[in-house]
Structures are given as structure tokens and as C-alpha cells.
Design a protein around this nucleic acid. Structure first.
Lengths: 343, 343
DNA sequence: TCAGACATCCAAAGCGCTTTGAAGTGATTC
DNA sequence: GAATCACTTCAAAGCGCTTTGGATGTCTGA
């Protein structure tokens, strides 16, 4: 059942039926009811492919995910982000189009998706410091918004980011206030912009306290439980082990905790952990009594807000770039305590 | 730059240009090269909206996710599933269209998506025992595949599922072999088919061993860390606490472990845990030395296979329903041990 | 030399919708 | 009674591709 058929049955023109269905004013209320009734009766729905061709809008937002390198993107944080974004898309009648592409194909995929008109806008995930996607998308002239920032990119673009540097600086300072002097950093991959900024925050806090950073106390890699475990394990095995850790994610913090408990140490007494907490719904840190002391910022809320900002941009293209910098909140949990005496 | 423009510049018909670009044989190799060169030069890409309208195929697969009830779907397991499916889609030139819908709108969303021609096929996630979506999609006459099964649905449909009953029966039997007699079950939500089947497996193993199941030892709910913690906490507080737990997910197992360790008990010695392990990339159980004894089946592999099966079905519609039942593998880890004497 | 096979190309007809510009009604105004 | 107006409705022109059904020219074999 298509529009032509439906309009023939109703003895009306396609124009009128289309307008009746889409709520245009220039159609008799009586007629509109007849049309609506017939549409329901014949179970008619407009073909979305034809609709998007005619309107020029696809009502869908693209997310392009590189997947070759150790699943960089399709992770637990990502799931919460798209849950947030998806909610907002649904409210506005958009759907979300995910394409997983091999890293080396990524630029092509953007171009394909954008230029072909498959999507009305794009969200860029986890930018690298000098991310080529950004200038690429600017050239393509399609609305897009970056979740995060790319420090070395000079072209203006819309973004939403957590103040990662300040967050980790605050967190590290908190550990310093507890008299910890040897603090291990277990960071994400430092080609990612956010990881660099977190490292900067860590270094800034140490420097401000007059402590010389040691490369032996700084690790970076996949934000997984095993990487957290392995990194903490290594550092704890060294001759001068750290008394506290800053972990870039609650997932790696779980690994750190395992390494600590494995050697009979008590978290929060013998060794402290502070982590970045994306407030993931399936791995919550606890509201009333947080397990980990953490810098918290909800990635789901970020997903929601990114979607809103992008949809605004699609609807009102002439408005300028949107940028938002969120501050993470320090949450005191049970994983931190004063540095044990004599350490 | 569209096809008309491009063909004008080349002094060729749209037909020829289209065929040259799409690799049809009836075009001179010389001409094809000219066309390809011009397309590259003018940075031409076919408009995908027009393409899908003309071909009748949208080259995209729909996943519709209900989101109101405690984020049922957008979870860590789901992320791995779509990572797997997405890989396969990418290889075949498909993209993935996610729509998050409120539960009460879900049937409408299916109908919308399907009938409107937005997608060529649909994957159904986490079916309930009597899931209305299945007969609904059958009526819509669109290819679809269910990840999981719906026991009470009688219409035939394509599915891929893990043999959940056998998996948990095997796992529970393993604990029984270690002389555990009081075994707690921390299940997913039992309106979900897979959770029911897991419960059936648990009950079957107990019954086979001549043990009467106790409702006090059976919990179900969200498969989150806090739910695992709270359930285990409760049971351990009872007058006759269990000596072992069967957890429906590695995430809830993390919560169980926390409850155990919190009271100074040692996992694998004082209390055993066996869990279902979806082999999630960011929360791996460990390959060489698994933390948890588990029934393992990779959800990412399932995602890949579901995508393959669905694409087959789209390409060759006349073939019958595809069904696959996977067996989970028992992995011995450090979380289980013989029941302590006198318990 | 000519029919038929083959290679190459094209005009035009969709795909199913939206939207422009115009036309057909009565009712109202002057 | 003519002109104006608001209200409805419609025919037709896109949107940018794919694909059908030729058309044209070239080559082959008898």
C-alpha cells in the first residue's frame, strides 16, 4: 500500500493525502479524518526511502566506530554513551546509524556516509590529538559534533568534553593531600586526546607539589581489567612501589584492585585507588557508599547532551559552533586513605 | 555533483555512467576508466537515498532496543554483540541502524522501521518467553533473526541461541561434584527467555542430585554488579548460607565476589562462584588463568554469526529458517573449590 | 554479401514520496 | 453584479538514482 493507491481509494490527490497525513493546515478537518481512517485501515506507512529522497533529510545520525585496534571503541563506556544519545534521538524522531570500519578505511567511511546523504549529522568518538577526521568532516560540510576534543586541530568545530586535565589534577591532588608521594598512573592510550589531558593533569598536580614524575610510575594502554591488573602488578613488584594509583577508568580500577587484594593488601588502607568514573549503568560505583574514590562525570548524560547539541545544529545550521566543557566531580569512596606511615 | 552532472561532463548517458561505476559488463573498458577518473576528480558519490529508493534495498540492518526498564539492553553484553555484528555488516557493505524506543512503543517501532523500508532486516534482542515481537515481525514479512529464543512462541522463526539450560545444568553439576549442596542462584530477569532456561538448568541439576530447591537461594534481577552484591549479601546473611553461587553474568559475579571478600572470606576456598561468561572483551575472565570458573560462550562471536545468518536470509529469501544452538564451554578457574568440610 | 552475434551506448520509465503553483469553490464585500 | 477572499483541492515537477528495452555500429561466418 503506497500513497498513490491510498489516494486512489480515497478519491483524493496524493498531495492532499500527503498533507493530511503530515499535518499541514490547508486540508479540511473532515478530509483529514477520512484520510487518517483509511491510512489506519489499510495499514499505510510512508516509505521512508522515498521520504528521505524527497525531503533531503535522512532523519538519522551517524556514528562511525573504528574497530581494528583492540576494540578501542565498542566498549562499556561507548554503550552508555549511545544509550544516552539514543534516548534523545528517539525523542526527536531520529535513528542512529552505526558503522564499524577498519581504521584505515575510516576517512572513506565518513566521506561515504556523509556525502551520500545517509545521515544528517555525525558524532565523532574519542578523537586523537591531531585527528584527521575533524578537518575532513569540516570540508564535507555536514553537521558534526566531537565527543572530546582534538588539541592539535585548529579548525573550529563543535564539541563536548569533560575537563579531563582538571579532573585528574584534582584527583591526584586529593591523593597528595593524603600524603601519598609515589602515585602510579594507569592511563588510557595516550594517542587519544582525553588520555593526554589526563596525563597532563596528573603531571600538573605532581609538579605543583614539587614531585618529579617517574616514567616507571606511568602506564598507558587499553582501559580493560587485565591491563589495570598487569600495570598495578608490575608497579607493586618494583623496588619502590607506589602507595596510590590513579586509574583512568573504573574497569581498569577493578584490575588494580585485584592486583592489590591478590597480595593480601587492603584497598584504602595499604594502597589507595582513585579512578575516573564514567558512571556506567552496569558498573556503578555506588551512590550512597562509593567503592572507589573517583572523579565522576556521567557518559550517558554526555551522550544525551551531544545528541541535543547536534540536533540543534542540524535544525538551525546557521548558528555557530557549540562547545561545552564539563567538570567532573570528586566522589569520596572507600578506596583511598592516608598514606601509611614510613612509606 | 550528481549523476546527471557527471554524465553531462563526460558526454555520456546516466545509464552508462551508472553502469560503469557499478561494474556492469556492458561498458567499454576505456569508457569505464574515463568515468572512474572523472568520478574521482569531481569527488562524486552516488546519493544513497536515491540509490536505496531505486534499488529497493536500504543496505542496513535494524536493531531495536527497548530502554525504559532499567537499561535492560544497552549493556556491556550488548556492546560486544553489536561489535561482532558490526564487523560482519561492514564486510558486506551494510550499516547498522539502532533505534532506542520506550517499551510500550516497541511494536510500533518495529512496524515503522520495517514497513517503511528503512532496513532490510532486523535482529531481535533478548526475547521474552512469549515475545510479541516475533509474530509481529513474521506478519510484516521482513527478514529477521532472534538472538535467543522465545519458548512460548509457536510460529517458526530464525534464531541463534546458547544452550542456556544445558550450560547452567553443567555448571551447577560441577559445583555438586565438588560436594556443594547449598548453591545460590543469581539469575537475570526471569521474564527473559534465557534466564528462565538458566533457571531450568539449575533446577534440573539439583533435582538430578536429589536436592530440593529453595526459593531463598534463588534471586533474579538486573545483571549488574550491585544486584550481584546485594543478592549474595542477603544470602550470606541467612542462617543457612550457601557455600556456592551460580551467577548469570560475569558482572553480577563481580558483585558476588565483593560480598564474599567484604566479610573476609576467600573465593574458591570458603565460597565458590561459577558464572556465565559472555567472553566480553573489556571484562575478560582470563585465557590462561581464568579468575572465575565459568560456562563460556562468546557473545561477540554470536553477534558475528547472527549477522551472517541474517544477511544470508536477506540475500536468499527463499531458503528456510536458520537455527543454531551453541554449547557453552566449562572453564575451570580459581573461583571454585571443594565444599569446606562440615558445611 | 548478408544475417546474426556481439559490444556499446542511450532514452525514458520507474522507485514513492514532497512541494510548488494553480485552479475550483462558495462566501463575502463593495 | 463584479471583485475579492479564504478555503480546499489538484496536476505535475521534482529528489537522484537504477534498469528496461531498444538503437547503433562492428564483427563474424557461411
Amino acid at each position: 500500500m503506497n500513497l498513490r493507491e491510498l489516494s486512489e481509494r480515497l478519491n483524493l490527490s496524493q498531495t492532499t493525502v500527503s498533507r493530511a497525513l503530515n499535518g499541514y493546515p490547508e486540508v479540511n478537518e473532515e478530509t483529514r479524518k477520512r484520510v487518517a481512517a483509511a491510512a489506519a485501515k489499510f495499514n499505510y506507512r510512508p516509505n521512508i526511502r522515498a521520504q528521505t529522497l524527497a525531503t533531503g533529510r535522512s532523519m538519522s545520525i551517524g556514528h562511525i566506530i573504528p574497530f581494528s585496534k583492540q576494540n578501542e571503541m565498542v566498549n562499556i563506556v561507548f554503550a552508555d554513551f549511545i544509550a544516552g544519545a539514543g534516548e534523545v534521538y528517539a525523542q526527536h524522531g531520529y535513528s542512529m546509524s552505526l558503522s564499524l570500519v577498519r581504521d584505515e578505511d575510516e576517512l572513506n567511511a565518513y566521506q561515504g556516509v556523509a556525502e551520500k546523504g545517509a545521515v544528517d549529522g555525525i558524532i565523532v568518538h574519542s578523537p586523537a590529538r591531531d585527528d584527521p577526521r575533524i578537518s575532513f568532516l569540516s570540508d564535507l560540510d555536514i553537521p558534526f559534533l566531537v565527543h572530546g576534543r582534538a588539541s592539535e586541530v585548529t579548525t573550529p568545530y563543535s564539541w563536548l568534553d569533560v575537563n579531563n586535565k582538571r579532573a585528574i589534577k584534582t584527583g591526584t591532588a586529593h591523593l597528595l593531600d593524603l600524603d601519598h608521594r609515589r602515585i602510579g598512573l594507569i592511563n588510557g592510550e595516550e594517542r587519544m586526546d582525553f588520555a593526554q589531558r589526563r596525563r597532563d593533569g596528573y603531571l600538573a598536580a605532581l609538579t605543583a607539589a614539587g614531585i618529579t614524575p617517574e616514567t616507571a610510575l606511568m602506564r598507558s594502554g587499553e582501559m580493560s581489567e587485565p591491563h589495570g591488573y598487569a600495570s598495578a602488578h608490575d608497579m607493586l613488584d618494583s623496588t619502590e612501589p607506589p602507595t596510590a594509583f590513579v586509574a583512568s577508568s573504573i574497569v581498569s580500577a577493578l584490575g588494580v584492585r585485584r592486583a592489590i587484594e591478590e597480595r593480601g593488601l587492603v584497598m584504602g588502607r595499604d594502597i589507595s585507588i582513585l579512578c575516573f568514573d564514567d558512571d556506567i549503568s552496569y558498573l556503578p560505583n555506588g551512590r550512597t557508599t562509593p567503592v572507589f574514590t573517583a572523579m565522576r562525570s556521567s557518559v550517558r548524560a554526555a551522550g544525551r547532551r551531544c545528541a541535543e547539541l547536534l540536533i540543534d545544529q542540524i535544525k538551525i545550521p546557521q548558528q555557530g559552533m557549540a562547545t561545552e566543557l564539563w567538570d567532573a566531580e570528586l566522589i569520596i569512596g572507600g578506596s583511598t586513605g592516608p598514606c601509611p606511615k614510613g612509606r
